[in-house]
Structure formats: C-alpha cells, structure tokens
C-alpha cells in the first residue's frame, strides 16, 4: 500500500508545472523515505531530479518500493480538477496498474477521486557524481526567471560568466546584444533578495535559453534558486521546496565547435 497526503493540492500542481515542460511522462519512485524522480528530456540535453521527503507529507505510507510511471498530460488533467486549497491524497496498491488521486475540500463537504492508469516506462537513470563546483550563485528565483525571459529575446543561448565581482548573463543575435550584471549584495535585512556567490575559480559557460526557461517554471515553488557551475560540466539549477524537498535541473553546456 502506498499513500501520500498533502494539505495543499497547490503544491503538487506547482511540482507538476515545474516538470511538464521538459517531460511528457515520468516514473515516480516511491520508498519509505519519500518520492524520487529522475528523468531526461527527450533530447537528453537536460535532466530533472525531484526529491520529496516522506516527512514533508502530512501523511505518508509506503509498505513496498513502488515505481509509478505517469503520463504528465493526464496527471495535469486530473490536478486541474482540484482547488489549490484542497487536500490531495495519492494512493496505489502494491503492484497496482493504476493510481488514485483523492481531493478533499477544506470543510470536507466535497470529496472526489480520480483514477489514472499507470505506464511501464523504460527509464534510463544516469549516475551523477558529487561535484565540488567552481562557483555557486544563490539569487532570487524571480530575478533568474526574469533574466532568462529577457535574454531569450536576443538569442538562443545565454553566456553565464561568474567572477568574484559578480555574475554576468549575456546573449546576442540578429537584433543586437544584451548584458545583465548582478553584483553580490550584502543586504542582511532582506535575505531573500540577496545575490551571493561562492567562488573557487571564475567560470564562463554557454547554455540554451529554451531549457533555462523551462527550469524557471519551478519559480512558484521557491523564492530562491541556486546555480552551480564548473568548467565543462553540466549546470545545476536547484530550487528548494520548503519543508518538502527539492527540484534540481541539470543542463549540458554548449561547446565550441
């Protein structure tokens, strides 16, 4: 028996919004420690790694490890049937071929359940080594989203260049070029607005805008984001999901031909 309950359906909707741009379907691996998902987009350029801890749920039970392959468009249809403040419970029997979503309104006067068929997905898991990154940038997630959106008007790629002075995002194309520089801030009063840089050595890498913009669909999950970079390794963009877990995106850098 698997059962996981969240007081707010809105949280699960945000998690789904954060992955469905990149993935059409995904396997949710459930164990007694929580729910994990690791999947690459169809072009194998980016990877989503989601972790939801058991203790972040209001109720969590997983008697046997279970992998639930879900079509994310179908899951989206079902979650549209929930109000954001409805409680959601995800349930499945051991070895089940379907999963049930139960939505309960605040006052319990409306209870609905939706059953969805599960899929057998061939998943390719990648072994991701622990890396000591040359630089880690912590910044407001809304600012990162804005920068990706603004720069993608100019070109298909963004160059991210991090030094001890700050971080520079730049893009260029047919209409011209754009540069955005962020300096490290020391505003302790408004910690969530700070930009901080842990730098071992300066790094400059180039990334496709399209994927960065998809990653920023996680912005509603967290007001902070971190960007971890080293020369010639994939970028890691991480959003902490408060009290529940995290979502990490990996993106292969572009290289000079």
């Amino acid at each position: 028996m698997f059962e996981a309950r969240l007081v707010s359906s809105g949280t699960l909707k945000k998690v789904l919004d954060a992955i469905k741009d990149l993935l059409n379907e995904a396997s949710f691996d459930c164990s007694d420690t929580g729910i994990q998902l690791q999947a690459m987009d169809s072009s194998h350029v980016s990877l989503v790694s989601l972790s939801l801890r058991a203790d972040g749920f209001d109720k969590y039970r997983c008697d046997r490890n279970l992998t639930m392959g879900m079509n994310l468009a179908s899951m989206t249809k079902i979650l549209k049937c929930a109000n954001n403040d409805d409680t959601v419970t995800v349930k499945a029997q051991d070895d089940a071929d379907c999963v049930t979503f139960v939505f309960e309104s605040k006052k319990q006067e409306k209870i609905s359940d939706y059953e969805m068929k599960l899929m057998n997905l061939d998943q390719e898991h990648l072994g991701i080594p622990e890396t000591d990154f040359s630089c880690v940038i912590h910044m407001p997630s809304g600012e990162f989203s804005r920068i990706c959106r603004d720069l993608s008007q100019f070109g298909e790629s963004v160059i991210i260049s991090c030094t001890k002075e700050g971080v520079r995002f730049s893009s260029s194309g047919d209409i011209g070029s754009a540069n955005i520089k962020l300096a490290q801030t020391n505003n302790i009063d408004k910690e969530e607005e700070t930009v901080s840089i842990d730098l071992q050595e300066p790094v400059t890498l180039t990334f496709a805008c399209q994927y960065l913009n998809s990653f920023t669909k996680a912005t509603p999950l967290s007001n902070r984001v971190s960007l971890s970079m080293s020369a010639n390794v994939p970028l890691v963009v991480e959003y902490e999901i408060p009290d529940l877990g995290h979502i990490r995106y990996y993106l292969a850098p572009k290289i000079e031909e």
Binding site: T206, A208, A252, E257
Partner: peptide
C-alpha cells in the same frame, strides 16, 4: 558556432 552535447557526454548510464 556552438554545439549542444547531450548529458551522456558527461554522465554515465546507471
């Protein structure tokens, strides 16, 4: 001109 490699250029399959 830049080239877009896949993640398999960096990570091994499990």
């Amino acid at each position: 001109p830049t080239n877009q490699p896949t993640l398999m250029n960096f990570f091994k399959k499990k």
